[in-house]
């Protein structure tokens, strides 16, 4: 994945850029770069997880936004109850400490992925695509109906989750938190890809039938990958909620799932740094096109079609070679 000298170079430049972005922002007097960079890092985290499914295992999940949104709502709902001093489902109190809320967001998203994956993975191919889509949309409707938590309008809260030594108001500090989370996730997935577990997933992508022929029961590994990816999406969702101090059903909307898939393919399916490039390209393109015209989707749509039809290798392949 990151093997040739050129690939190492591109990877090093990316990591360096990630670290130096705040300095760059003040140097260029472009403070917007901080929020853009934060958004890129968060999307990249979610996409790294999805890439494990699409790129490594060959599972085209169309419901990734569900776990992203769940992670976000864990943050939002706990903040809501903390502010109201009431109890969630009348059982336990709200919370605002990151060290409680974020792990909880990961766990709940992972549990939902375990459940949805257990059912969805009974199917394959197009059915799998549609079922993951439908389950995610089910959660979308659920949150849109929860009037207590804002329903369609979403749920705002006043303050980011508290972290030790980090001021919740400091946007640069929050950027560093997200960038550090991204680097941790990347390092983790780098190891996972080469582990026995990653080995099996790659085998499943190449041929599930052949894996059965050497004695492997693939279902449990696919389910584990699905759960892991869901948990990571939950972390990304928790960060997203913190960035905006707002959550809404849009986080779970199927177009968000579509955006994540686009980022995987745009960046380079199955590569470690592809998701970072895909997320960056998507965020920058949207920002740039939106400045240019209100009807930016009219460019984005055909661009996407062209990328799928013509550019198969993605940005990582274009920059770093195969």
């Amino acid at each position: 994945m990151v093997e040739t000298a050129r690939q190492r170079l591109v990877a090093a430049i990316l990591v360096l850029l990630l670290a130096a972005l705040p300095a760059l922002a003040s140097l260029l007097a472009m403070p917007d770069l901080i929020s853009l960079g934060t958004q890129v890092a968060i999307y990249a985290i979610a996409t790294v997880g999805l890439n494990l499914l699409i790129g490594t295992t060959g599972l085209p999940s169309f419901g990734h936004a569900a776990f992203f949104g769940l992670g976000g709502y864990v943050v939002g709902i706990l903040a809501f109850h903390a502010a109201e001093d009431s109890a969630v489902f009348g059982l336990f109190p709200g919370a605002t400490d990151a060290w409680i809320v974020w792990p909880l967001a990961i766990i709940i998203a992972a549990l939902a992925a375990l459940l949805i994956g257990a059912l969805s993975l009974r199917t394959a191919g197009v059915s799998f695509i549609m079922i993951t889509l439908a389950f995610a949309q089910m959660l979308f409707y659920l949150f849109a109906a929860l009037k207590t938590y804002g329903g369609d309008d979403g749920l705002g809260f006043r303050r980011r989750n508290a972290l030790p030594w980090v001021s919740p108001r400091d946007d640069v500090a929050f950027y560093y938190v997200c960038a550090a989370a991204l680097l941790l996730v990347l390092a983790g997935f780098h190891l996972v890809a080469r582990s026995r577990f990653g080995n099996v997933l790659q085998g499943i992508r190449q041929s599930e039938r052949r894996m059965a022929a050497i004695g492997l029961r693939s279902y449990r590994y696919k389910l584990a990958a699905f759960t892991l990816a869901g948990g990571v999406a939950g972390l990304a969702g928790a960060l997203q909620a913190n960035m905006l101090r707002f959550v809404s059903p849009d986080m779970l909307h199927w177009t968000t799932s579509g955006d994540f898939m686009v980022m995987v393919v745009l960046g380079g399916t199955g590569t470690l740094f592809g998701p970072v490039l895909g997320a960056a390209a998507m965020v920058l393109l949207q920002t740039w096109l939106a400045q240019w015209t209100e009807h930016w989707m009219i460019v984005m749509g055909p661009l996407l079609v062209a990328v799928i039809l013509l550019a198969r290798r993605g940005l990582w392949g274009a920059l770093a070679g195969k």
Binding site: S195, F197, G198, N199, V200, Q206, M211, L216
Partner: peptide
């Protein structure tokens, strides 16, 4: 897409029990 060695090593891995090992480099 696997090398000859990776192919056979993967079989050895499947035979060695479950593959829920997430960190160590299998290759």
């Amino acid at each position: 897409q696997f090398t000859a060695l990776q192919n056979v090593a993967l079989v050895a891995q499947v035979r060695a029990g479950h593959s829920f090992h997430f960190w160590a480099d299998a290759h």
